[in-house]
Amino acid sequence: MSIDMSVSPAPLLPPQLMQTEALLTMRGLSRTYGAVRALRNVDVTVYPGEVMGVVGESGSGKSTLLRMMNLEDTPDRGDYRLRLRDRDDGNLFELGRYQRRMLCAHHIGIVYQNPHLGLLMRHSSSGNVAERLLIAGERSFDVLRSKARDALDASEFPLDRMDSRPAELSGGMQQRVQLAKAIALEPALLLLDEPTTGLDVSVQALVLDTLKRLQRDRQITMVLVSHDLGVIRTMADRVLVMRHGEVVEQGLADQVFQDPQHPYTQQLVHAKL
């Protein structure tokens, strides 16, 4: 049977009912590393309280995109805005290094797949969390300790281990320390880069459950990158599917999984389920 273009759904309309403005808006992001096109004209919009999932295989550009959101890297072209209370920073890619660092410390939290990227392995767990508070200007020891304790508790980290060094902890516990550090300053945006990849399945479920709880209780806006469709399915409200640096499909999570439109997404979904 030949492919008939008339059976494609019509393009969706711009939001009409949604009164809230987007928290995160990225437009036209492109980035090449040497001969590799890591990102190609990528647009992303994330609304307050949403969990946006980003899926794709390695090399699809999904981790590059997350690093851009965390201002660790800048694109060749593109615009990035966060709508934060009482401030307009314009295109965040044009901020100076110090401003960028302060903006990240106060408003963006990140959890990496590899805890070595996010943690000082020889400092105590509470010290790792307190470090984030120190960067933000907190100096009182008592406040540092109690805030670190609260963040660890919210991440469901066992408080009797808060003086242990991450190097002595299991993978799941290390991720909880990263999470505590990421949420200690109640960021507007929480970035999660394969946060449960490499953990045992049972530990993975518990970490995801913690993330769900945090999301429910605090309505933190999250961008979650994972190659694991099960993780995305559990967590995400909406999904971006990336391939070769491009967004090939985006939609409500249930729609992307149950009625994928792009050949690549169909292949991904069928391969995994």
Partner: peptide
């Protein structure tokens, strides 16, 4: 049939 995803979510 054509509403934006965020409107549907709302």
């Amino acid at each position: 049939a054509r509403a934006a995803d965020v409107d549907i979510a709302l």
